[in-house]
């Protein structure tokens, strides 16, 4: 089931195009990654989803209905540039921002208490934000984002500024939120977090969506056809066995055991390679190398650059 959908969204600022007919379609209870280099238009898209800015054209749907101002209560947003009132007490601020999202005073107080207890920060209750460290402020910001339990959560670069320990905490929290039914869209440069968390992604470059889909499918689509095989035998022997359809990319020797990465031509299959090797060597392991999101990202963006250049 699709929870959120953006269709043909375009936005132009005075002198540049920020988004050019971008489509995204986010399944319910999933984690959706929005990738792209700096200035690609990710933040603009997130702001449009939050109704901070209006698109020039295109339509947005939440739960199949057109997005309206009532949906503010159904969306939680953590902007890239975190910010809170510095002179305001942490608890007061959380309650205030929760109420702005439509919570009643009672509910807001109850939930802030609950989350402060969960994150073990109840002794910050009466502190002013300026007295907290940056990491502490991030935690408060996270609580404020999810306080009104929205169905759709939007994080802009959620992992920037967190130390590794808190990054783990945040990742687990995001997974926990999905388990309880929330749908999460986040933009990031951090590719390892994409591999760990995302179910689907869209890659935006130069205002356009250049790649979109399920993470596993994308990896499959972009696999370069390289296999890693470990076997008992000699490297020269391997080179002798393989014909022009196969190209050895790297080779490691460790005693009588060889590990080789072999790229195969499109005309042959992995089975052909395996047959060839099996008849000559004792095979220890054989696997296909899948590309990392990082590689796909760099590959596509640099290709795009060449195209526009």
């Amino acid at each position: 089931m699709i929870l959120f959908e953006a269709k043909n969204v375009s936005k132009k600022f005075s002198n540049h195009l920020a988004l050019n007919r971008v489509n995204i379609s986010v399944p319910g209870q999933s984690i959706y990654g929005l990738l792209g280099p700096n200035g690609a238009g990710k933040t603009t898209l997130l702001r449009i989803i939050n109704q901070i800015t209006a698109p020039d054209s295109g339509e947005l749907f939440l739960n199949g209905r057109k997005l309206s101002s009532k949906d503010i209560a159904n969306i939680g947003y953590m902007p890239e540039e975190r910010g809170l009132y510095k002179k305001m007490k942490v608890s007061e601020q959380a309650i205030y921002l929760g109420r702005l999202k439509g919570l009643s005073n009672n509910d807001a107080v109850k939930r802030v208490k609950h989350w402060f207890e969960k994150f073990e920060i109840t002794d910050w209750w009466n502190k002013k934000v300026e007295e907290l460290s940056k990491g502490m402020q991030q935690k408060v910001q996270f609580i404020i984002t999810i306080l009104h339990e929205p169905v759709l959560l939007i994080f802009d670069e959620p992992f920037s500024g967190f130390d590794p320990v808190n990054t783990e905490v945040l990742k687990n929290e995001v997974l926990e939120l999905r388990k309880r039914g929330a749908t999460i869209i986040f933009s990031t440069h951090n590719m390892s977090s994409v591999e760990e968390l995302c179910d689907h992604i869209t890659l935006i470059d130069n205002a356009e969506s250049i790649l979109t889909g399920n993470v596993a499918d994308i990896k499959h689509k972009f696999k370069p056809g390289i296999y890693e095989v470990t076997l008992k035998g000699d490297s020269a022997e391997i080179e002798r066995v393989l014909n022009n359809d196969y190209k050895i990319i790297s080779m490691k020797k460790n005693g009588g055991i060889c590990t080789a990465r072999i790229k195969i031509d499109k005309t042959v299959s992995n089975n052909d390679l395996l047959k060839l090797l099996m008849s000559n060597f004792h095979i220890i392991s054989f696997s296909e190398l899948l590309p990392g999101m990082n590689d796909i990202f760099i590959d596509l963006v640099s290709k795009q650059k060449k195209k526009t250049a």
Binding site: R47, N50, I52, I72, Y77, P79, L84
Partner: peptide, 11 residues
């Protein structure tokens, strides 16, 4: 302080 973006995602 950048709190503006959070607030105008609500009002």
């Amino acid at each position: 302080s950048r709190v503006i973006e959070i607030i105008i995602s609500s009002v």
